[in-house]
Structures are given as structure tokens and as C-alpha cells.
Write a protein that binds this DNA or RNA. Structure first.
Lengths: 335, 335
DNA sequence: GTGAAAGCGCTAACAC
DNA sequence: GTGTTAGCGCTTTCAC
């Protein structure tokens, strides 16, 4: 039943495979009568077209792959939702794969591109260096989203990380804070680095001194947030506010503050980045810089599909900046 | 560069496509010399095999699809991690797709099975009725994980939901609670229904009365948890403990309790189900029934791959029960 | 409006 | 150890 082929259908209804194919793709004119016979045969045989054959022939799969460093982050999934929403009505399927921060797995997943198993890939983060990405982009359809790569001339959709960091810190300053700490990943992450640049620019703009002891660069891992806070709060002069480059770090920070017998939003202000769902669920709820995930997903896949369609023609490899916004909740306060 | 075919490689190195194919799959004996020539040509042309051709010919894709109702749940992703871990060294790729609780999208995703685009599907929840699943399982390789379907004779891996519910409520009773509420989805969800059955059996076993007003059946949506708590706490005699069929509902409940000016773990005990990462991050941390996600993922895909290999032979359509465990944290207390 | 036939890129008999 | 060749299931010219 399942392995009926188009040929079986043709035999069953006494028409040619060409005609069957035509009704399958309602491509050319087929008489009503023939169409019905085909449909009946399909029904009877429980036929379902084999896309391996179709895709091989058409040299396209209508599938977009989204890769991400980790799937624990609901943030990524929001972007995927945006991608899906755009693809759905346009006949594209989207599939996801997370590489668990293993560049080995990432490479393996990219094989789906080289394989021709997917028509394009959207990378929500990558371990590939710029040159490699540029090389890939020459031949394949790829795009970066939410985490750009310095020097990569590849279709990219991101927020202005530097400005986002600036705005976050500025909002803390406006609330009266003057000793503001920074918790981020190390500088090899473009987004973390830029958000730090924004942090520094804001301090400078408002003539606040930069204290090295208040700058904690580590990783994006949850644990880093708490560890950094522990260090910060044990300083002779602890900060009154801390800007974290991700909500996960911010949440970890809030947690640790609580463990230390203090209260985020009262004893220390905590600000994150991303606006993941959990920010609202926290007690206190977490202030943050919102990234418009759904819009980013829609935009990046829209441009990617355009590139795919324009195969052969000039590819769009621009970097699109989408607007962020500051969301103040309970974890920040006026001092 | 990218569209070099095996034929191009053959021409380039002056050997036949068969030989090239052989070194690609290191299937038969190929002389060292020839192998080198092939590799050189591949390198030179930047050749990458087209899997559409290969898969069509071999009638397999070595790809497993995991579908889930929503991707916001980190719980699902933990299972996927287990699946991935098992697949990785065995040459299978795993891809995910979430259907956002839309059965229409789910159907569309299942097309990848009919299409022959994937070799098997693992469903972490489904809107398909038992008969449909049984029918599908005859022809295709599918498996259910973490959410079974009553009456489906399909390979399934789940915890004992009834016993899990029982154990959760029993642990609350052991802590001295006697008015214990239930917050769950409606009975069309097999897991929610069974956990309620366990809840009822525990009450009965310990000779506690069942109060209908303490049983809140709604949905799995976050909001439902809070709404139920609001209702429960406005009763003349509110419960001292509440068992929720999911951590998401429990977290929502904890949140609402806080909003009402009360404290979970002090004024009311809250217990969830799943042990998602967030349970530990909450303040208070949330007690729960742990499902061994990684193990579930590994087991289900192990059995599924066995079914795929045994194509033609007898398929394993058993239901495997994996052990759960009770984790008590701050959201529960002795009364 | 319909059919015959070529061919997408690949693997696997089968020959030698 | 290597080459020839027949398909895998499908779409799409090109005839008629």
C-alpha cells in the first residue's frame, strides 16, 4: 500500500504517468474525467508521492533548516515560530536541529545543505568563522539570524547589539544607578562583545567611571550569571545594578541574589537581554531588552527565500537591523 | 562548483562512476591509487554527493523526525537530546518540527513520512486518534513518546502516569496535607487523565474524601494554572496543597499564589510533573515528578531504529514504561 | 488533452 | 579491482 508508485497509479487508472503527474501538480490541462480517474486510483492504492524522486528531478526540496547552538532556549524557538509562519503558506517546510554547542555536530548538520537535502539554512548562531561563511554563501543559501559574525558578508538579521546594550545601561542610569556591573560571555561572541561596547559607551556618555572589577566576562551558560553575582556582591563596593547580555544570565543572577539573602529589584537592579518567556514568570519579573523574535524570523526567511528564488542572480547578503525595545519590570528600580 | 556530480568526478579522475561511488561509500575494494585519484578529484571539484539521488536509490534517508505540540517546552527538547545522542554515532540525523498545537500542521509534517523524506517519526504528543495511528504504524515506522494514546498499538515510551500521580499525591499526604487540589488538562489527554486517576486512587487509599470543587480540569496552557489557583484560593475552605499535571501549570500556580500575597511552600504546597529546568530556577524551587527525558528519548529511538531495520519483519509495537521519581523542593512543606 | 521517453544523481548487480 | 548498465520515482519536454 505505501509503496505504490506513480506508475502503479497510472496502470490502475489506465492513463500515463505523465497525466498522473499533471493532476498531482495540477500543472497542465487535464480533463475532468481523467482527473477523477486518477484521484480514484490514488485513493484506492493509498498512493503518496515519493518526494525523493520529485526533489531529485526538480532539484529542490522546499525545506529550510534552522540550526541553533542549543534548544533549551525558548528564545530560539520564538524565532523559529516566525520562520514557520512565513514558510507555511508558501509551501516550504521548516525543520530544526540543535547542535548542542558542538561544532562537530554543526558541521554534520550543514551537510544537509551540501547534500541537497534542504534548500537553505538559517543559523541562529554558528561556530563557523567569517571566511568559511562567505565561502559557503557563494554556493549555498544561508543566513544568520540573531547572532551575526563579524566580517561575514552573509545575509544577516540582528538587532543593534551595541545600541541595545547602550539603551539598557542608559535606562539603568536614568533610574539613578551609578555603579553598574556587566555580565557577559567572552568577546569571541559578536553579540556579547557589542553589548559590552554599548555598556561602555553609555557609561562614558554619562561620565561614569569604568571599573574593571565590575565587568564579568565568561560564558552564556546559566551558572556564569550566579557566579558573577557572587563575585560582584562580595566586593567592598558592590554595584547597585547589573546588565546581563542574556536573560538566562539575568535569571541566574536574580536567583543568586536571592540566595545571598538579598532581593533583586530592591537591593540590586538586574537587567537582561532577549525577553524570553521566563522573564515574565520570574518573581520578581525581569527587565530586559526585547528582541522582536517573530519579526526577525519572518524577515530572515523572507530574504532567504528570495535568494533561493533568484538562484543564479545577485544574492542579497546585507545585514538587516531590526528594532529592539527596553522593557522595565520588577527586577529594576529607582535608587 | 557545488553542482558537480559523481559523473564529473569520474571524468575528472579518469575512473568510472562505480569506482567513485565505491570510495564514497568505501563499499568494495578499491586500489589505494584509485582512491587517491578520486579524493583528489573530489577535492578539486568541491564535490559533495547529492543525497536525493542516493536516498532515492537506497530507499532510505537516515533521518528521524521528531514532532511536538509546542517547542516552548524545554521538556521536549530534553527528550530530543536523548534521541540525538543515540542517533549520532549510528549515522542517523534527527530533525525536529513543532506543530504549535495545530493538527493541520501536524498532518503536514507527517507528510515527510509518506513522502519518504524521513525514515521514521517520533511523536511527542499527537492529535491523531488511535485507529489512525494503528493504521499508520502498519505501513510506516512511528513511535509515541511521553504522551501515549489510549488504544494505540504503537511503539510507545512513557512513564506510568497513573502511578506518577499517585506517588505525587501520596508524598503530599505524607507531608500532612489532607485537602489536596488537582489542576490538569481535560480528560482527552491520556497523560492528564491518568495522573488524575492516580490522584484519586491516592486519596482513596488514604481515606481522604474527594471534593469536586478541588478538581480543576482545563488545558495545558500556562494561564490555566493561575486561573485554577485563583478559583481554589477563593473557596471557603481552600486546599493546603495542589498537584498539577505539568510543571508549567505548577509554575503558573506558584506565580499566582505569590500575586495573591501568599507564599508557595508555606501557605500552600505546589507539586508539578516533568521536572523541567525551570523548576530549579523558580523561587521557591518547584517539587515535581521527574520523567527521565534523556532515557526516554534514547529508548524510543533505539526501538524505532530496530523496527526500521527489521523492515518487513514483525514490528515492536509494545508500550515501554520508564521509571519516574519524586523530587521534593521548596514549593512543598510539612503542614 | 494525452503519451512516450529522457534524465535528475546515485547505487548495485553483473560482467570482466 | 574496475567498468557497464539498469533502474530508484518523479517531472517535463516534445510529439501527436
Amino acid at each position: 500500500m505505501s509503496d505504490a508508485t506513480i506508475k502503479d497509479v497510472a496502470n490502475e487508472c489506465g492513463l500515463s504517468v505523465a497525466t498522473v503527474s499533471r493532476v498531482l501538480n495540477n500543472s497542465a490541462n487535464v480533463s475532468e474525467r481523467s482527473a477523477k480517474r486518477v484521484h480514484d486510483a490514488i485513493e484506492k492504492l493509498g498512493y503518496s508521492p515519493n518526494f525523493l524522486g520529485r526533489n531529485l528531478r526538480k532539484r529542490e526540496t522546499n525545506v529550510i533548516l534552522v540550526t541553533m547552538p542549543t534548544s533549551e532556549h525558548s528564545f530560539y524557538m520564538k524565532i523559529v515560530a516566525g520562520i514557520q509562519q512565513y514558510c507555511q503558506p508558501r509551501g516550504y517546510d521548516v525543520i530544526c536541529a540543535s547542535y548542542n554547542n558542538s561544532s562537530e555536530v554543526e558541521v554534520r548538520q550543514m551537510n544537509m545543505l551540501f547534500n541537497r537535502t534542504v534548500d537553505g539554512v538559517i543559523l541562529l548562531g554558528t561556530s563557523y568563522p567569517a571566511e568559511k561563511l562567505n565561502k559557503l554563501a557563494e554556493t549555498y543559501n544561508i543566513a544568520l539570524c540573531c547572532e551575526g559574525v563579524e566580517g561575514a558578508d552573509v545575509l544577516t538579521v540582528v538587532v543593534d547589539d551595541e545600541q541595545g546594550g547602550y539603551d539598557a545601561v542608559k535606562s539603568l542610569i536614568k533610574l539613578g544607578h551609578r555603579r553598574i556591573a556587566f555580565i557577559g560571555a567572552n568577546d569571541s561572541s559578536a553579540s556579547s562583545f557589542k553589548r559590552k561596547e554599548g555598556y561602555l559607551r553609555a557609561l562614558k556618555d554619562f561620565q561614569l567611571p569604568v571599573y574593571d572589577e565590575l565587568i564579568c566576562c565568561g560564558t552564556f551558560e546559566y551558572e556564569h550569571g550566579g557566579e558573577a553575582v557572587e563575585k560582584l556582591m562580595s566586593l567592598k563596593e558592590p554595584p547597585t545594578a547589573v546588565f546581563c547580555v542574556s536573560d538566562l544570565l539575568a535569571i541566574s543572577a536574580v536567583h543568586k541574589v536571592h540566595e545571598l539573602g538579598l532581593e533583586a529589584g530592591k537591593d540590586i537592579a538586574v537587567m537582561g537581554f532577549d525577553n524570553i518567556t521566563m522573564c515574565e514568570m520570574m518573581m520578581p519579573s525581569v527587565s530586559t531588552v526585547e528582541q522582536p523574535c517573530k519579526e526577525m524570523g519572518e524577515l530572515v526567511v523572507k530574504k532567504l527565500l528570495a535568494n533561493i528564488s533568484a538562484s543564479g542572480g545577485e544574492k542579497d547578503n546585507k545585514c538587516y537591523i531590526v528594532p529592539h525595545s527596553i522593557i522595565l519590570r520588577e527586577s529594576t528600580f529607582r535608587i
